[in-house]
Design a protein around this nucleic acid. Structure first.
Lengths: 212, 212
DNA sequence: ACCGCGATGTATCGGACCGATACATCGCAC
DNA sequence: GTGCGATGTATCGGTCCGATACATCGCGGT
């Protein structure tokens, strides 16, 4: 998962670790907390060993002579390689079942702008199926095993069921939009500020601002 | 987390691993998938080493003579010890920041029936604070950094923001109920079947059916 | 002039948890 | 009689997290 996200982000620009974490947090803030350095740095090491990225110490040429004493451990900038881009594409293509769990789906969705429409559709439908299964499981528990569980546990299931139904509806909407070739965000009279435009529709060609 | 859940479940009845997993899945189905045996068995081993639980092979007395050849590896039944119950109470009491992340909160909530009201309130408020922070973070991104992100990422944030707002409202409701000493489930004209009662309100004494 | 303190920045270590895998028994349907 | 799904115990490699350590920079307070 982290591998995928890093590869995806580094395609936008080379970055050093700290920056990478910040961008990652901004992009994935909706689905998970902040990424830990205890995962980030080892993963970066791993990616480099595999040849997907290269790391370069940031030293601006001049004054290479006296690096001893207070060596000013410079920032390490990571850049994706051609093989790395290939790897990313490959990871997108083979969207298996692990792509449909909460984190996996979220991360893949965050990089939908780099995913072709067919794969997007496949992932959205896989996710929907998975959530529908979870929903059925919760309904079962709430229906059949309700008397075995205490009121708090039941309330938790109810809340979870609600979230499932909501997400299914959300996914339906996205799938419908996807099929009709539109950008994901239909202009809803929504929660936040009034501006309703979205820049750079991922599939150019059929992008019309929905206005009858 | 797993330690907490196991200790909580085993207080209801002794169980063997497979059963434990099933109960765990039923109880926590709303917040996480199924628990893995790769976590379950090592954790059980750890709990036993610490003395919180005891394991006993299931062999019904008679025919102890010929266990060799097709030894019929019996089920191993785990029972919580007095120290285990103490440990569970201690884990409830020290509800730290890790209690407020998604999984941690969910697991603790699932065992609210074994938690005193003051702690319940503390956990609910801690969780609310945490979700409010996440919500503010998402609003920031959607407000300030919107033009830096593609339409899909924005849609993801929007969905996450929605979930946050919804959860905060849910928590508010629970907190209000908790403060007034009621059971968690107010009789809502809800989704599933019509029965609106809940058995065994966790704090007896002030339990009144809400009817002005 | 000095100090603290928060942001920036890189890094490791132990531990929790997962997914895949292996192996064995039981009951039932075909 | 045989395959097959549910029941049941268990390990292994690997991913990721939380705590911790350490170092620099700039800014505001005193």
């Amino acid at each position: 998962m982290l591998e995928f996200a890093i590869l995806g982000l580094l395609q936008e620009a080379p970055m050093h670790g700290y920056e990478l974490r910040k961008e990652l947090t901004a992009k994935l803030g909706a689905i998970r907390a902040a990424i830990s350095y205890g995962s980030l740095y080892p993963t970066l090491r791993r990616l480099q060993a595999a040849g997907w990225i290269t790391e370069a110490a940031e030293t601006p040429a001049t004054a290479e002579e006296v690096p001893a004493l207070t060596s000013r451990r410079g920032r390490v900038v990571y850049t994706i390689t051609a093989e790395g881009k290939e790897r990313f594409a490959q990871l997108i293509a083979q969207a298996g079942p692990e792509t449909y769990d909460d984190t996996g789906f979220g991360v893949h969705f965050a990089f939908f702008a780099r995913t072709d429409q067919a794969t997007r559709l496949r992932i959205l439908e896989g996710r929907r199926r998975k959530i529908e299964e979870r929903r059925e499981g919760l309904r079962d528990v709430l229906g059949r095993a309700a008397e075995r569980l205490d009121a708090y546990t039941l309330e938790l299931q109810r809340h979870g069921l609600d979230a499932c139904e909501r997400e299914v509806r959300w996914l339906e909407e996205l799938i419908a939009n996807e099929r009709s070739g539109r950008a994901p965000t239909a202009p809803r009279p929504g929660t936040a500020g009034g501006r309703g435009d979205n820049d750079s529709p991922p599939t150019p060609g059929t992008s019309r601002t929905e206005r009858p």
